[in-house]
Write a protein that binds this DNA or RNA. Structure first.
Length: 295
DNA sequence: TAATCGTGGTA
DNA sequence: TTACCAAGATT
């Protein structure tokens, strides 16, 4: 469950080290739930989409309080947990509990789009037809047959891996594909995508400002002043004083986070908007002495 | 339904 | 250097 949260929109290679550390520190839902959210946000590091850490912590709390600390095994129960959507519920049920769930992720969608539909890329949003197709392609499972379930789940893993390692988005390694002879996209002469993927701008966006603010909050032990976070001050007086006493501090994570935030060419209005959205999302909170990570 | 939400590797 | 994109969820 932890790995599935971390893997949402994040490559495996970047998840692995964070996951290792996380699982050693919090081997059970109860262990995570026992600590403040701020610790989860800090341990999340630079994985991105920090709201996932918020929701994983919230899910751990629900599991501890309502499921006696045991992760539920049905898709319906999983789906009700914070941060668990269609894919994650199916993946946990399938990979952790051997429930023959129909798993549909971006890799599987792409494999099916090419192999079956003959298109370079799947549609931009998942359709009901894709779920039905995935269900139809999966090996049949007679009720409560454990061997059948294992086969179905091996299928899910196999198709996902095929998409992740061979049938990749940009430069598919068709020469290594075990089902190239059945591929409708190959048969059609590898046509180009019929739409242009929309970009994900970063520089100058609210996301960039939010990310920089979160980095500051992760690395600054004490609550920070709103004015400092908004960049109306060059650097915090405390940070400047510390550097005068110890120049090596200039390389410290918190100082670098401050510099990065202040270096952004974001208008004051945008900084206010970013901070307000952080507060609204619960990724930061306004305390009596300043802004800090949520407890 | 479409927009929003981080970060870093890679072609 | 830029743009794409990576085991999605939520509103």
């Amino acid at each position: 469950m932890v790995s599935e949260f971390m893997l949402q929109q994040t490559p495996v290679v970047r998840v692995l080290p964070v996951w290792e550390t996380w699982m050693k520190r919090w081997p059970t839902p109860a262990a995570l739930a026992a600590e403040p959210v701020s610790e989860a946000l800090k341990a999340w590091g630079r994985l991105g989409y920090p709201r996932r850490a918020l929701r994983l912590h919230a899910a751990a709390t629900v599991i501890t309080d309502e499921f006696d600390g045991e992760v539920p095994a049905t898709q319906e129960q999983l789906l009700a947990l914070p941060g668990v959507g269609t894919y994650t519920a199916a993946a946990i049920a399938c990979f952790a509990f051997n429930v023959p769930a129909v798993v549909v992720d971006t890799n599987i969608r792409r494999v099916h789009a090419r192999l079956v539909s003959g298109q370079a890329l799947p549609e931009q949003s998942q359709t009901a037809g894709e779920l039905a197709l995935a269900a139809r392609l999966m090996p049949a499972v007679s009720s409560a047959d454990n061997a059948d379930a294992q086969l179905a789940n091996a299928w899910n893993i196999a198709v996902m891996e095929l998409g992740a390692l061979v049938c990749t988005a940009r430069s598919p390694r068709c020469e290594d594909c075990p089902v190239i002879n059945q591929c409708a996209w190959i048969a059609a002469g590898r046509p180009e995508p019929h739409y242009k993927p929309k970009g994900q701008p970063w520089h100058g966006t609210d996301r960039q400002v939010r990310g920089a603010m979160m980095a500051v909050l992760r690395h600054t032990p004490a609550p920070v002043q709103r004015a400092d976070l908004l960049g109306t001050v060059d650097l915090t007086a405390a940070s400047q004083a510390a550097i005068e006493l110890n120049p090596a501090r200039e390389a410290s994570p918190d100082h670098r986070a401050w510099v990065e935030l202040h270096a952004l060419e974001a208008p004051a209005e945008q900084r206010v908007r970013a901070l307000d959205s952080l507060l609204a999302d619960g990724l930061a909170q306004q305390g009596a002495t300043g802004i800090q990570l949520p407890r």
